[in-house]
Amino acid sequence: MKETEIISGCLRSQASAQRALVDTYAGYLFTVARRYMPDEASAQDILQEAFIKVFSNFHQFSKEKGKLKNWMSRIVANEALRRRKKYMDYHQSEDPETLYIKADPKVWSDLHEEQILALVRELPDQYRMVFNLYIMEGYDHKEIGEKLNINASTSRSNLARAKAILRKRIIQTENDDSWKKINLNIV
């Protein structure tokens, strides 16, 4: 089913179109949810709630707002933020020494997506949120500050720390067999 057919069907609340939407985008949106949530169960909850919201508010989608995929991705992200506000402690800290670790750029391209995802999910909550919102969703620091109720400068700082932590852990695991232990079968 083409995306236009899916959209028109979802606007009429057709179950077949909704199912097609789920089949088409569930994998990608689950990745988005997993980027925000450290455990699989929470990510699955968020994905399901996000789809319910997508279908309940599908009339609000318009092509002027961008691609359907990006629109749903933001719904997943917002759902993750809403969940985070309720359940997560936002006052974690990280060792500042990680700021000064450097990594070989060649490493990035050699990593599997699940490895990158695992690294991102291991980030402390406040860094992971900023990293995802800035790098993946494309929000600027002012918008991130409003969403997370922090200053824009704090958002910049958290992003820098998130990157530093990622570099550090990639270097640490460059010669580490632990990468091989990552379970790629998520579900």
């Binding site: 689950f30 990745t31 750029p105 990035w108 391209s109 997506e113 990158i116 990157k163 579900v187």
Partner: peptide, 17 residues
């Protein structure tokens, strides 16, 4: 490089569900 690598890898990656 860091941002590009992570974004390019994850933006199209579909997790098994």
């Amino acid at each position: 490089k860091l941002e590009h690598s992570i974004k390019s890898k994850l933006s199209s990656y579909e997790s098994a569900v």
